[in-house]
C-alpha cells in the first residue's frame, strides 16, 4: 500500500539514508531537471505564490511486493517546475508565507497555492511491457487576498518512458514528462477555468474602474476644471 510522506527540511535526506539502510533491496530516485519557462502571455494580475513546505520536501515511498522499496524525491523538481512557470504566467508574482494577507496589503490581486495530492507509478515486470509510467495530480487553489477560496483546481499529468537498462532513470524521465505535462496544463488552461475566468474579469473590471481615479492625467483634470467653469 502506498505510503505518502511529506517531510520537512533536512529530514528529507536523513529519511533517504534511513530508507537505504533499512531496505535490503531499494530504489532511490531524486527527480532533478530544469524546466523551461512557458511561452504564454502573462495574465494581467499580481499574484502571491504560496508554496507549502511539504511541496519543497515531497518524498514518495512505496513498497512493491516481490520487487523493492521505492523512494522518489520530488521536492527539487517541484520548485524547478513551478517557479519559472508562475513567474511567466502572471504580470507580477511575489512569494507569500500565508493567506489571508494583511488587511491593508493591496499589492496583490490573489494568492495561488499548489499542492501535490497524488503520485502513482508503475514499473513493468513483464518482457513485453516497454514503458515506465508516472501519474501525478496537483491541486491549485486560488484565494482572494482575504483568504476566500476562488477555486480549487485539480491538475493531473501523465508521463511514460522507455524502461531501458536502468529502472531508476526511467522513473525519473517519466516523472519529468508528467511534470512538464502538469506545467503545460496549468499554463494553457488556468485562465480557461470558469471560476478563474470570472475572477480575472472582475479584477480587470476593478482595475479599469479604479484606473481613471488613480491616474487622472493632468490635461484631463484641466479639461474637467474648464468644463466646471
Amino acid at each position: 500500500m502506498p505510503l505518502l510522506s511529506h517531510m520537512h527540511g533536512a529530514r528529507r535526506w536523513s529519511a533517504l539514508a534511513v530508507s537505504l539502510l533499512l531496505a535490503g533491496c531499494s530504489s532511490q530516485v531524486i527527480v532533478e531537471s530544469s524546466f523551461p519557462s512557458p511561452l504564454v502571455e502573462p495574465l494581467p494580475v499580481r499574484m502571491g505564490i504560496l508554496i507549502p513546505e511539504e511541496l519543497y520536501d515531497y518524498i514518495y515511498t512505496e513498497e512493491i511486493p516481490d520487487q523493492s522499496l521505492w523512494t522518489i524525491a520530488l521536492g527539487d523538481a517541484n520548485v524547478a517546475m513551478l517557479e519559472p512557470l508562475f513567474a511567466k504566467m502572471f504580470r507580477e508574482t511575489h512569494k507569500v508565507d500565508a493567506v489571508p494577507l494583511a488587511a491593508n496589503d493591496g499589492s496583490l490581486d490573489g494568492v495561488l497555492q499548489p499542492t501535490l495530492e497524488k503520485f502513482e507509478f508503475d514499473v513493468p515486470v513483464g518482457e513485453r511491457d516497454k514503458f515506465v509510467e508516472v501519474w501525478m495530480q496537483y491541486q491549485l487553489t486560488l484565494y482572494e487576498p482575504n483568504g476566500d477560496t476562488v477555486v480549487a483546481w485539480p491538475v493531473s499529468g501523465y508521463g511514460k518512458s522507455e524502461l531501458g537498462r536502468n529502472r531508476e532513470d526511467a522513473v525519473q524521465r517519466a516523472a519529468i514528462v508528467a511534470m512538464r505535462e502538469v506545467g503545460a496544463t496549468i499554463s494553457t488552461k488556468f485562465a480557461q477555468q470558469p471560476q478563474v475566468s470570472t475572477w480575472l474579469g472582475e479584477k480587470q473590471h476593478a482595475t479599469s474602474v479604479s484606473a481613471p481615479a488613480d491616474s487622472v492625467p493632468l490635461d484631463a483634470a484641466t479639461v474637467q476644471t474648464q468644463n466646471a467653469r
Binding site: 512557458p38 511561452l39 496544463t185
Partner: peptide, 12 residues
C-alpha cells in the same frame, strides 16, 4: 521542445 514549451508536449 523547451523553446516552444508548452506547445509541443504530448497533450498540447
Amino acid at each position: 521542445e523547451d523553446k516552444m514549451y508548452p506547445w509541443f508536449e504530448p497533450s498540447t
